[in-house]
């Protein structure tokens, strides 16, 4: 960045001119050199001054903004820019609406919650948890009933994620279930859907396990993450304590194909133990569940730089 040179004093220049106009030409004492103003600090994180080995090692294992140093009491310029860029990615994802004909174009049964528009969807989670009348009729008339597993693709809080890797995950998960010999429900996609919508859908089709795959609440820089929520014996009135979930299904987290097999393992455990959520015992399955087991080593992560500062 460029250095700034302070301007010479205007008042002193004026007085020097007036002085010679008034006839005093004697030499003035030399003026002090004009100072150079140091450029404002642009630091790259982690800033060299605040570098600590612990922070560096910890930061290598997460894309969370830790170990980013500081300039005075503030963040460094590039940290602020990166933060704003990542926040923009998240905003973008939240405000993207799943097109009405997207499900049909992918050959999925198209459903919709009781929400009227995207704005209402963000403000009224309760409406997003129930199907509207038309969808309910469609579900009753054309969905396969009495299945072992009912996978549901949905937009959730990130239609970007659903349109990105939603189909890959849905197809991979359905294939894993079929491979294990379970009957899989009609592939369907719900718009303006919240997690609990799986209760009503699962109840209507009489599924043993309902699995909703939906775009998760975007975080900094991740607008493309999917989450999966599984519930055994879906019925309206089930709580989050009855659910198991897997988050961060995206390329920098758990890739969709790998997630599909882990979800199948979870589903298998539910079918076997006939329960889900808190009562489900996952201790024998830790090795197969990977991160979902909760104790795994987390490989170093690389932050995607959205902004470059020179």
């Amino acid at each position: 960045m460029k250095e700034f040179v302070a301007l010479p004093s205007r008042t002193r220049t004026l007085m020097a001119e007036l002085r010679s106009r008034l006839g005093d030409e004697g030499p003035l004492p030399p003026a002090p050199p004009i100072p150079v103003i140091a450029p404002p600090p642009v630091r790259v994180f982690p800033s060299p001054r605040s570098r600590s080995r612990f922070a560096e090692q910890a930061a290598a294992h997460t894309t969370a903004m830790i170990g980013i140093g500081h300039v005075g009491t503030r963040y460094a310029t590039d940290v602020v820019l990166q933060f704003q860029a990542e926040l923009a990615v998240a905003h973008e994802a939240v405000h993207t609406v799943l097109p009405e004909d997207w499900a049909a174009s992918k050959g999925l049964l198209s459903l919709k919650s009781r929400v009227a528009d995207h704005h209402q969807f963000l403000l009224r989670p309760d409406l997003g948890r129930r199907l509207d009348e038309a969808s309910l009729g469609k579900l009753r008339s054309s969905a396969k009933r009495g299945v072992d597993v009912q996978p549901i693709l949905a937009d959730g809080l990130s239609a970007v994620a659903t349109m990105g890797s939603g189909m890959t995950l849905l197809e991979a998960f359905s294939a894993e279930c079929s491979k294990r010999g379970w009957s899989v429900g009609t592939p369907m996609c719900a718009r303006f859907a919240r997690v609990w919508l799986e209760d009503e859908i699962g109840q209507e089709v009489g599924a043993k396990v309902a699995v909703i795959l939906l775009g998760e609440r975007p975080g900094l820089g991740t607008g493309d993450g999917l989450s999966a929520y599984l519930v055994y014996d879906p019925r309206i009135g089930k709580t989050d304590g009855d659910r198991n979930m897997m988050s961060n299904i995206h390329l920098r987290g758990t890739p969709p194909v790998e997630a599909a097999s882990r979800l199948a393992v979870l589903t298998g455990a539910m079918l076997e133990q006939r329960t889900s959520g808190v009562p489900l015992d996952l201790s024998p399955l830790v090795a197969q569940l990977g991160d979902a087991g909760g104790t795994g080593y987390r490989a170093p992560q690389k932050r995607v730089r959205l902004v470059e500062t020179s």
Partner: peptide, 8 residues
């Protein structure tokens, strides 16, 4: 000398 700066 008139109008010579008197540095503070």
């Amino acid at each position: 000398m008139i109008l010579e700066p008197l540095p503070p």
